[in-house]
Amino acid sequence: MYRLKDDEILFVFTGPHGAGRKTVAEMSGATLGVKQVLSYTTRPPRQTEVEGQDYRFISPVEFANAQNNDEFLEVKQIDNHFYGVKSQDVATMLRERGSAFLILNSAGASTLKELYGDKLVRILIYVDRKTLLQRMKENGESDTDIERYMSHYDEEVSYRSQCEHFFENVDLAHTVFDLTKTLDNYLNRNLVDLD
């Protein structure tokens, strides 16, 4: 496992599916120059997902081989699919940029927190149940998928008490603004507040 240097830091975004964690992470990361370390998964891509942009989509055999070779920092099984973060990907990103972010569920965030301690900052992005249901319906999610995602809602939102920061994503622009200021406190990029 890669040992983080004093000036290196990892951010993990977590929260229920559909709350906007990926969007706010990417927008804040773009402002601050922080890039994502992609997870690997055995599930097929969703209609809107792109290989190398959302995940690394690999076969169950490829995943098992990588797991047997101890390439993953953490592995989780969710809804019969495997997800994992490769240690080498984290190490490469930190050597190149000094910081990185990941998007994981609460279990994955907890595993990495145990590994990296204070060098890892967990950020929960959430919305209330009613808003989340409305967003998923507007996005054209099937009733089956909505039911599956909502079955994880309480578990993901209750993780808020263990996170260093949490943001209710009601207004995207405000959430990104507040999040970017919070991340800058760790990165010391000294963004100028023009308000």
Rank of each mutant, 00 (worst) to 15 (best):
L73A: 01
E74T: 00
V75T: 07
V75F: 05
V75R: 01
Q77W: 03
N80T: 14
H81C: 08
F82E: 14
Y83T: 14
V85P: 15
Q88M: 14
D89A: 11
V90F: 13
V90K: 10
A91Y: 08
T92N: 15
M93S: 15
M93F: 04
L94E: 13
R95N: 15
E96W: 04
E96H: 11
R97C: 12
G98N: 13
S99E: 12
S99K: 13
L102A: 13
L104M: 09
N105V: 12
S106D: 07
S106Y: 07
S106M: 09
A107W: 00
A107C: 06
G108R: 03
G108Y: 03
G108Q: 05
A109H: 01
T111P: 02
L112N: 00
E114P: 00
E114G: 07
L115M: 14
Y116K: 08
G117M: 02
D118K: 06
D118E: 13
D118H: 04
L120R: 04
V121Y: 00
R122H: 03
I123S: 03
K130N: 12
T131S: 12
T131I: 13
L132M: 12
L132R: 05
M136A: 06
N139G: 07
N139P: 10
G140H: 07
E141M: 09
S142A: 04
S142N: 07
D143S: 09
D143M: 03
D145H: 02
I146A: 02
E147N: 11
E147V: 11
E147D: 08
R148I: 14
R148A: 02
Y149K: 05
Y149L: 14
M150W: 00
S151K: 07
Y153K: 03
D154L: 12
V157F: 08
V157D: 02
Y159I: 05
Y159V: 05
S161A: 11
C163D: 04
C163H: 06
C163L: 08
E164S: 06
E164I: 13
H165R: 08
F166Q: 04
F166A: 06
V170H: 04
V170Y: 01
L172Y: 00
A173S: 05
A173P: 00
A173Y: 00
A173I: 09
H174P: 02
H174S: 14
H174K: 08
T175E: 04
V176E: 04
V176K: 06
V176Q: 07
F177Q: 12
T180S: 15
